[in-house]
Computed example of a mutant assay.
Amino acid sequence: MIKTYRRKLLLSAAALAVLSASSVQAAEKWPSKPLRIIVPFAAGGGSDFEARFIASKLTDLLGQSIVVENKPGAGGNLGTEYGVRAAPDGYTLTIIASSYTVNPSVFDLKFDPVKDIAPIVRIAQGPLILVANPKLKAKTFKEFLELAKSEPGKLTFASSGTGSIVHAAGELLSQRAGIRLRHIPYKGTGPALADTLSGTVDVFFSSAAAAIPMIQSGKLRALAVTTAERIPALPDVPTVQESGVPDYAVPLWHGLIAPKGTPPEVIEKINAAVNSTLQSKDFADRLKAEGLTPAGGTSAEFATTIKTEVDLWHKLSSTVPLKAN
């Protein structure tokens, strides 16, 4: 009986050793065929641009062609699930946006957003910009807070849709600043921005790319940025943190993930290649024009960012409804 048990243990250990050796060998040979990057949004947006830029640079660094596949739908969840369910061999990567961490509090996902992925690296980062119609009495963010506190529930903020990162950012500001803003959801950035321009709504948390031209032309007033630091494109616009809400930060970002179980050696190779690519001046210049900066960092740092934000929005959603009725 004891001999049989020992024999089974030895066989199990041998099998594990073979599997481990095979995994290491596969990682050493990677990449031996073309890769693909899944973009869970339509072509032409920020995620698509970054994926195609990274793909072009990694093709040279890794010696294999990289195909970008757009799979939009369900707020990015359709393409993301497709990427997450792919074989964990390092040949299918998925680009995700910061909305990825809000989605678990809005949708019933068919995968675990933390446990079912292997984070690789953040690519770019930037702020939402709190913009106001110039007719609003508040000229600065501090004046905006004072006005909101004096008229609870009267000031309105537009979003690109219920459950969006913009909606979550507005609700978090209300909670952290001790104010009450009235949420007005729209179907996309375009109509939300248009009604802020017309004065139908008071403020909007806009992407930098959409807001900067309007700010520079004087059609909108920038009150604050949601990142922890000011941005080079708008150096005179303060952060929310420095303007009276020290525990508030909602950065926008894009990053790469792979399916859970992808060999760590492969993850590190991709991470190193992307970090090298992010040193490119033409990429930095293109991002700067949109109010963004290269991000980079380790896979562990990106994993921490994802988990921290998933937990943040889950906690917020327990007190503020982020789902559509």
Rank of each mutant, 00 (worst) to 15 (best):
residue 5 Y to L: 12
residue 7 R to T: 04
residue 11 L to W: 09
residue 12 S to Y: 02
residue 16 L to Y: 07
residue 18 V to G: 06
residue 24 V to Q: 14
residue 27 A to G: 08
residue 29 K to P: 00
residue 31 P to V: 00
residue 37 I to L: 06
residue 38 I to Y: 09
residue 38 I to W: 07
residue 39 V to T: 14
residue 41 F to N: 13
residue 43 A to H: 05
residue 51 A to C: 04
residue 55 A to N: 09
residue 57 K to E: 15
residue 60 D to M: 02
residue 64 Q to N: 06
residue 65 S to L: 00
residue 78 L to V: 05
residue 86 A to S: 15
residue 87 A to P: 02
residue 87 A to D: 11
residue 88 P to L: 00
residue 90 G to A: 07
residue 91 Y to T: 07
residue 93 L to W: 09
residue 100 Y to D: 10
residue 102 V to L: 09
residue 103 N to Y: 03
residue 111 F to D: 12
residue 113 P to R: 07
residue 117 I to R: 14
residue 128 L to T: 03
residue 130 L to M: 15
residue 134 P to K: 08
residue 140 T to E: 11
residue 147 L to E: 15
residue 150 S to C: 00
residue 151 E to T: 13
residue 160 S to G: 15
residue 162 T to S: 13
residue 167 H to N: 14
residue 173 L to G: 10
residue 174 S to I: 03
residue 177 A to S: 06
residue 177 A to H: 02
residue 178 G to N: 11
residue 183 H to R: 12
residue 184 I to K: 14
residue 188 G to V: 03
residue 190 G to K: 14
residue 196 T to G: 01
residue 202 D to E: 02
residue 203 V to F: 02
residue 204 F to E: 13
residue 213 P to R: 07
residue 214 M to A: 11
residue 214 M to I: 00
residue 218 G to F: 01
residue 222 A to L: 07
residue 225 V to M: 06
residue 226 T to P: 10
residue 228 A to V: 11
residue 232 P to M: 06
residue 233 A to L: 08
residue 234 L to F: 05
residue 235 P to D: 12
residue 235 P to M: 08
residue 236 D to Y: 05
residue 239 T to E: 01
residue 241 Q to C: 03
residue 244 G to R: 08
residue 252 L to Q: 15
residue 254 H to D: 11
residue 255 G to Y: 00
residue 256 L to A: 03
residue 257 I to S: 10
residue 257 I to V: 12
residue 260 K to G: 04
residue 263 P to Q: 11
residue 264 P to I: 01
residue 269 K to C: 01
residue 274 V to R: 08
residue 278 L to W: 04
residue 280 S to N: 15
residue 285 D to P: 00
residue 289 A to W: 02
residue 291 G to L: 05
residue 293 T to L: 11
residue 304 T to N: 12
residue 308 T to G: 05
residue 312 L to D: 12
residue 314 H to N: 15
residue 317 S to K: 02
residue 320 V to A: 13
residue 320 V to I: 12
residue 324 A to Q: 15
